[in-house]
């Protein structure tokens, strides 16, 4: 089995060593590097080319958000998960902007963290569900405009609505009774038609276009 190669960046020695202890017990993961600041994380990403970089947001010197953007530039194949204390929609937005594929809080349970890593490694973005709900609640619907949404097929719209609740491809596939691979193709088409780069931005557009009942968020 191919193990995911992980880089961990956190300027708190205690938290970092705790995280190493948690991940070391997962056979599918291999911790290839540790960094105590953003600069080191960027440098290590360039040389080690990890599959995933787990970044704390608040770090001395270059913070996790800057580091994320830098890593996306210099080691594009390295996917980023922010692991932070900040239970905040704005940090989530900033993380998405910086190119992160995942966002989880530091008090996340082990199983959930391993799930996030697995999802991101599989090419899906995964953000804290509660934060996503709050993010989408902020978006005020603007029914006018958005001709891009009009170009979506019925099935694509169906899948787009499900993206707003943070469902994974597998979950969507299960509830719609189709293959996960098909969902993946649909999602790619949706992103292409809406001219966005990730599922989160697509979800935001869906909410803005009024496809989703805001009260259900």
């Amino acid at each position: 089995m191919n193990r995911y190669r992980i880089l961990i960046a956190d300027d708190h020695e205690l938290a970092r060593s705790g995280l190493v202890a948690v991940l070391a017990s997962a056979p599918e993961l291999e911790i290839v590097g540790e960094a105590a600041d953003g600069m080191t994380a960027v440098a290590l990403s360039e040389t080690l080319r990890p599959d995933i970089a787990l970044l704390d947001i608040r770090m001395g010197g270059m913070d996790g958000l800057e580091a994320a953007a830098e890593i996306r530039q210099r080691a594009p194949e390295t996917l980023i998960i922010m692991l932070t204390m900040h239970d905040s929609v704005d940090y989530l937005e900033a993380a998405i902007k910086a190119g992160a594929s995942g966002y989880a809080l530091k008090d996340i349970r082990r199983d959930a963290l391993l799930q996030v890593i697995a999802n991101v490694a599989a090419g899906q973005s995964f953000f804290d569900v509660d934060l996503m709900r709050r993010l989408l609640r902020r978006v005020s619907p603007e029914p006018a405009g958005d001709a891009a949404i009009e170009r979506l097929t019925v099935r694509e719209r169906e899948i787009l609505v499900r993206l707003t609740t943070g469902e994974t491809n597998k979950e969507i596939a299960r509830s719609l009774g189709i293959a996960p691979g098909t969902v993946k193709v649909h999602v790619e088409r949706i992103l292409d038609k809406l001219q966005v780069t990730d599922r989160t931005q697509a979800a935001v557009m869906a909410v803005r276009a009024g496809l989703v009942d805001q009260d259900s968020l």
Binding site: H12, L14, A15, S17, G18, V22, S25, M85, K106, R109
Partner: peptide
């Protein structure tokens, strides 16, 4: 951070 570390160690 100490609490986070404690949490991770308990998880481990």
């Amino acid at each position: 951070q100490s609490l986070v570390s404690l949490l991770f160690r308990l998880e481990a």
